[in-house]
């Protein structure tokens, strides 16, 4: 399968007190068409920075892409001029955000906001764009689209606003959709509706979707593949089924054990002690070692992402020295 989007060794740095610190480092991700890749991690893990770097949406001052390539259909987005990049955004790669109310313009009708994208990227007339906007609202299953197209965001409920955001993102038929916690602000019943919608749209259009979330339950519902991030690095990546059945990295395992589940009785939760290290205070060696129950002296060396053998393909990788040793011994 050829990759639609191929991120290689991406390192994004922020300036904190006059020094550059890597918010994410050596991130490798590849996304195929008609695939949902979930990027999961806690706050501060770098999952949003990864998405924002991909679209080069980080502030010009105080943030920079230090190293790495972002290959979209063979072109390196990191090297494009701002003008070229503006054509990619929304057209080839679109993004939806967590809080639809702050991402929509309260002074414009929802129809005009969808139409704006079509007028800019596809040069459509206002009337034609509004017609298309109505069809898009229908496609994202907003009831009564002919009336809704003339309404303002405050007249929409939370779930409907997120649908409107999705309609804007999909207006130019992008090949890649970056979804940054799109359902976090929604109630579970509405969250399920939006997840189903995104999954259907992915299938119908053969889009690649990068789905960023902190919720492992949501990952299990929607993802084909998963990348787990911790303190700016990918610590484990695997096929979705495999990751949940055989988590290889201690952090993934600990996350699964810390999550209270609705489907089974758990008398004790196992919390992960401590908290995610800040961007300026990452420990030497393995970043997870201070919180890891398996930590050994050799965890003082920073581990690389190495293959984990097992049934069902070889694309399972984890960043753990102890797992690497176990692999060597086997």
């Amino acid at each position: 399968m050829t990759a639609l989007l191929d991120i290689r060794g991406l390192t994004t740095e922020f300036r904190v007190n006059g020094r550059w610190h890597a918010a994410i480092q050596d991130v490798d991700l590849s996304l195929a068409a008609n695939e949902t890749l979930a990027v999961v991690g806690e706050s501060g893990s770098g999952k949003s920075v990864t998405a924002l770097s991909t679209l080069r949406l980080l502030p010009q001052a105080g943030a920079r892409i230090g190293r790495g390539e972002i290959l979209f259909e063979g072109r390196d987005l990191a090297k494009l001029s701002e003008r070229q990049m503006a054509k990619v955004r929304g057209n080839d790669i679109a993004m939806i955000f967590q809080e639809p109310m702050t991402s929509l313009n309260p002074t414009m009708t929802v129809g005009d906001q969808i139409a704006e994208v079509l007028m800019i990227h596809r040069g459509m007339s206002h009337g034609a764009a509004l017609n298309e906007a109505r069809d898009l609202l229908d496609e994202v299953r907003v009831p009564d689209p002919a009336r809704r197209v003339t309404e303002y965001p405050h007249q929409f409920s939370g779930g409907m606003r997120q649908r409107a955001m999705i309609a804007i993102a999909l207006a130019c038929r992008p090949k890649v959709l970056l979804a940054d916690e799109p359902t976090t602000a929604l109630d579970v019943t509405v969250q399920h509706q939006v997840l189903t919608l995104l999954d259907d749209l992915k299938r119908e259009r053969g889009m690649g979707v990068i789905f960023i979330t902190h919720n492992l339950g949501v990952v299990a519902q929607i993802a084909d593949r998963v990348a787990v991030m911790y303190a700016g690095e990918i610590v484990e990546t695997a096929d979705c089924t495999r990751l949940f059945a055989n988590p290889a990295h201690p952090y993934t395992e600990a996350l699964l054990r810390a999550m209270p589940r609705v489907d089974r009785r758990a008398d004790t939760l196992e919390p992960i002690p401590g908290s995610v290290p800040s961007i300026t205070g990452r420990p030497a060696g393995c970043y997870f070692a201070p919180r890891c129950g398996y930590a050994r002296p050799e965890c003082g060396h920073h581990p690389v992402l190495g293959p984990i053998s097992g049934a069902g393909g070889s694309d399972h990788q984890a960043r753990c020295i102890l797992r690497a040793k176990a692999e060597e011994a086997a």
Binding site: R141, P143, S157, G158, G159, M160, D187, V188, T189, V190, Q191, H192, Q193, T196, N215, L216, G217, V218, V219, A220, Q221, A223, C240, T241, F244, L256, M259, R261, V262, D263
Partner: peptide, 22 residues
């Protein structure tokens, strides 16, 4: 509510009734 609550188990993907509305 129960069926919409995500479970961290991909083998257990449920499809609750597709009810509309909020």
């Amino acid at each position: 509510l129960r069926q919409s609550s995500p479970i961290p188990d991909p083998a257990n993907r449920v499809d609750p009734p597709r009810i509309a509305g909020e």
